[in-house]
Write a protein that binds this DNA or RNA. Structure first.
Length: 823
RNA sequence: GCCGGAGUGGCGGAACAGGCAGACGCAAGGGACUUAAAAUCCCUCGGUCCAAAAGACCGUACCGGUUCGAUUCCGGUCUCCGGCACCA
């Protein structure tokens, strides 16, 4: 036969799979498995990161089908979003045209990679058939009180001309373009994700199949902290100031209060007083600073006295109220109590403004005095100067004081979270319109379900900057109120694209359903996703939103699942020369060029072999050569014997030692590959054990030439080809055919390990003296400890080393080692 | 600062339950085939000492502990990566 030529065999088998519908989901098997790779944004070109994530998913999908599972392995497009709109502005193409052209191009590349997707379930979030249900989802949340509109200070990206959710601001910049985010006060739609905070936190415990770091990232993001809220009465006024503290045990040590510049009471407290001008100037200066500067620990803490005092509820003390630049309105209550003796920040602030210190917590074996403190004592301890709580430990006092506050209506135990509601309005065209109308008489009216989808008008004008084209489209803007029939104005904002992607894995289970987003039976048959695979950049954003939406579906009775993704694999990045591939660095290698030069099978094999899936890999052109070399080696091996195996065998002879050794090598590899894929996702070591088996086959080939044991060789080569098929699906088909089979290798059952083939008559054991390896012995398998000891002690090496010493102890591990302890 | 993860040859990595550290691959060196090259096949390949072999010693970031035995378990230190952070 000819040389291995992937450019011929790969298209051949891709056509074969398509013509025979080989990748369609087989729904009727006993066990199901839903393997899902995060769907891509249709940028137009696949990059190496895509190739990696699809290769991982495809090995798993193909392997599990062979293992007898019904496997759902779908693909789709996260197709709404800004790049399409920017392309429209730049090149005067409609976002839809641009997007669908990109989808076609990328789908072609995915097919060229030989990924086994069930294309009948393909979804694109920009299809009206899909976004109709995204709008339906909005209405579901609206009905359940989970979608609401409010005036709020929001993040604004001036470059993208739209608002952003908190999760979409990274280091003060826009997640998409990096432009520094500014603040705007706008009326916007929010999803009440904070109703689910505790469940989102608590259910992280269910996700033992997720990487620890991703769970930690979500936990940090949710940011639970437990403490108490305390209400301080303002002296001479009716107002109260609430503060949140995690240390209610230090309440008797409060010597001042600090308000955020944006706090609603600042103006009232200073109005008409002689301090008004000074405070106003301070507030304005503070507000001018951007978020990054304000949040920086480098910033100098500054404050100004308001002239007002409030009363500490527990002891009636008057404490001054200040405004400070380090107190944030967005966390807690926007006001903090100052306990300089027991908080380092407060300590520094108090020293600067000569505010008094009072020690209320001491370590058990030491006395502290306010005058001697060089820094705050922040650890737990025993209470002093705290009335009836003196002598209690911090831990006990936290509970007692919270109860005492509650009993007197001065405050209560409280839990605060960092997580904020999800801002979902976007002032852009290329997204799902928010299905809401504003009627002159009826106010805010949701679009009735039967009127969905609210279609995006096609005849819009795209231009840089300014507002969304929808807001300028007269035909879209004006509508009839479904309640009173009067004039109504449409909401012109579209939904955050993260809503589209927060439920797509449900849609795959019933992608063609015209009456529902998905039938409950179909959803429950597949969701939760058994294995989800994607980049770590979604650790918070997409994964948190999806968890939230799944819980909403669950509460509304649409799914039995409480979590969407049972197991998560956060695959590492593909770098080159130690840096992320990028055009500007000129270190980009595209899947296309690899397919063209070596074939998809080589590319897939290399990217899986180079590193474990969760680690970053450094792309190596030499390494790819190595993988290509290996596939050619397999090709030649099968080619060498395929014809020989077709010839009739006159009389089958018994297998000799060499035959059995090869059979053992192949079954050993099979066992390892099975475990590596199934239990550990160690594709790299799975591939290396296939390589070892092939090396053994080459040794055998050199020894035996044509004098092979036919039955054994057929078995060995078939196991090899089937084992390789999930990794190199085209080569697998071609070699399977070459071995005389008519059906697809991917329809084969995964071979079973023959444990008798693994048995060996003799093993090499290690003989150690005082833990150091001194000798090796070949002994029959299964020798008892006693027999091993005897053999080891009889070894000449041992005799020599132990000559003038006394044997203290002998440890024997059957089939492994003997350790002789001498003195 | 708090939380999490990781440190193994020239390189990517392996050692799955505490039992021969470095599987497999890349790179490097040598050999076979060839007029030659490519392709292919075979061999060597952690360090030091030794001409070499045999052998000895050292070696999994560092220091210590547990153990007959530690890359693996425990305590401490350092470095790198990631998340959160004037978070009250």
């Amino acid at each position: 036969m000819a040389e291995y030529n992937p450019s011929v065999i790969e298209p051949k088998w891709q056509r074969f799979w398509e013509e025979n519908d080989l990748n369609q989901t087989e729904e009727d098997r006993q066990k199901k498995y839903y393997v899902l790779e995060m769907f891509p944004y249709p940028s137009g070109r696949l990059h190496m990161g895509h190739m990696r994530v699809y290769s991982i998913g495809d090995v798993l999908a193909r392997f599990l089908r062979m293992r007898g599972f019904s496997v759902l392995h779908p693909m789709g497009w996260d197709a709404f979003g800004l790049p399409a709109e920017n392309a429209a502005i730049k090149n005067q193409v409609h976002p839809a045209a641009w997007t669908y052209a990109n989808i076609e191009a990328m789908k072609k590349q995915q097919k060229a990679l030989g990924i086994s997707y069930d294309w009948q379930r393909e979804v694109a979030t920009c299809d009206p058939d899909y976004y109709k249900w995204t709008q339906w989802l909005f209405l579901l949340l609206y009905k359940r009180g989970l979608a609401y509109k409010k005036q709020a200070g929001v993040n604004w990206c001036p470059n993208c001309s739209t608002v952003l959710a908190n999760e979409q601001v990274e280091d003060g910049g826009c997640w998409r373009c990096g432009t520094e985010v500014t603040h705007k006060d706008l009326e916007q739609w929010f999803f009440r994700i904070t109703d689910y905070t505790e469940r989102l936190l608590e259910d992280l415990k269910l996700l033992s199949g997720w990487p620890e770091r991703v769970r930690m990232m979500q936990e940090n993001w949710i940011g639970k902290s437990e403490g108490a809220e305390v209400r301080f009465k303002v002296k001479g006024r009716e107002d109260e100031i609430s503060v949140f503290t995690t240390r209610p045990d230090t309440l008797y040590g409060v010597t001042y209060l600090v308000l955020a510049a944006e706090h609603s009471l600042v103006e009232a407290l200073t109005a008409g007083s002689e301090r008004q001008a000074e405070v106003q100037a301070f507030v304005e200066n503070t507000k001018k600073l951007n978020d990054i500067a304000r949040a920086s620990t480098e910033m100098v803490k500054e404050g100004v006295f308001t002239g007002a005092y409030c009363l500490n509820p527990v002891n009636g003390e008057e404490v001054p109220i200040l405004v400070g630049n380090y107190v944030l309105m967005g966390y807690g209550t926007g006001a903090v109590m100052g306990v300089p003796a027991h908080d380092q920040r407060d300590f520094e602030f108090a020293k600067k403004y000569q505010l008094p210190l009072r020690v209320v917590i001491t370590p058990e074996d030491q006395e502290l005095s306010a005058a001697d403190l060089k820094e705050a004592y922040v650890d737990a301890g025993v209470l002093i100067n705290s009335a009836q709580f003196n002598g209690k430990t911090s831990e006990a006092a936290q509970k007692k004081i919270a109860a005492y506050l509650a009993a007197n209506n001065w405050g209560e135990a409280k839990v605060t979270y960092r997580l904020r509601d999800w801002l979902i309005s976007r002032q852009r065209y290329w997204g799902a319109p928010i299905p809401v109308l504003y009627c002159e008489h009826c106010g805010t009216v949701p679009v009735p379900e039967e009127q969905l989808p609210v279609l995006l008008p096609e005849d819009v004008v795209f231009k840089a900057g300014g507002q969304s084209p929808l807001a300028e489209h007269e035909g879209f803007l004006h509508a009839t109120c479904p309640q009173c029939g009067g004039q109504a104005r449409r909401e012109t904002d579209t939904m955050d694209t993260f809503i589209d992607s927060s439920w797509y894995y449900f849609r795959y289970t019933d992608a063609q359903n015209e009456n529902l987003p998905f039938a409950k039976g179909q959803g429950d048959a597949w969701v939760p996703v058994d294995q989800y695979i994607g980049g770590i950049e979604h650790a918070i954003l997409h994964l948190l939103y999806s968890r939230f939406i799944t819980k909403v579906f669950h509460d509304a009775g649409y799914t039995a699942a409480v979590e969407p993704f049972t197991r998560l694999l956060a695959q590492g990045m593909v770098n080159k020369d130690g840096a992320k591939m990028s055009k500007s660095k000129g270190n980009v290698v595209s899947p296309d060029e690899i397919i063209e030069k070596y074939g998809a099978d080589t590319g897939r094999l290399f990217i899986l072999f180079a590193a474990p899936p969760e680690k970053d890999v450094d792309w190596s052109d030499r390494g790819v050569e190595g993988s290509y070399r290996f596939l050619k080696r397999v090709w030649r091996l099968v080619d060498r014997y395929a014809d020989v195996l077709q010839q009739p065998v006159e009389q089958q002879v018994a297998a000799d030692d060499a035959d059995q050794a090869l059979r053992r090598a192949m079954h050993t590899a099979l066992k390892k590959v099975t475990e590596d894929i199934e239990e550990r996702f160690n594709f790299n070591t799975a591939i290396s054990s296939i390589m070892e088996a092939v090396n053994s086959a080459y040794s055998y080939m050199h020894e035996k030439e044509d004098h092979i044991h036919h039955g054994m060789m057929r078995e060995v080569l078939e196991i090899l080809v089937v084992m390789l098929a999930p990794f190199a699906p085209h080569l697998g088909e071609e070699l399977w055919e070459r071995l005389g089979h008519q059906t697809s290798v991917h329809l084969q059952s995964w071979p079973t390990v023959d444990s008798t083939a693994l048995q060996v008559a003799e093993v090499e054991i290690v003989v150690q003296v005082n833990g150091k390896v001194r000798d090796h012995l070949v002994v029959p398998t299964g020798l008892t400890r006693e027999a091993l000891q005897e053999l080891a002690l009889a070894s000449a090496k041992v005799a020599q080393l132990a000559a003038d010493k006394q044997v203290v102890k002998v440890i024997a591990v059957p089939d492994k080692l003997v350790n002789i302890v001498v003195r």
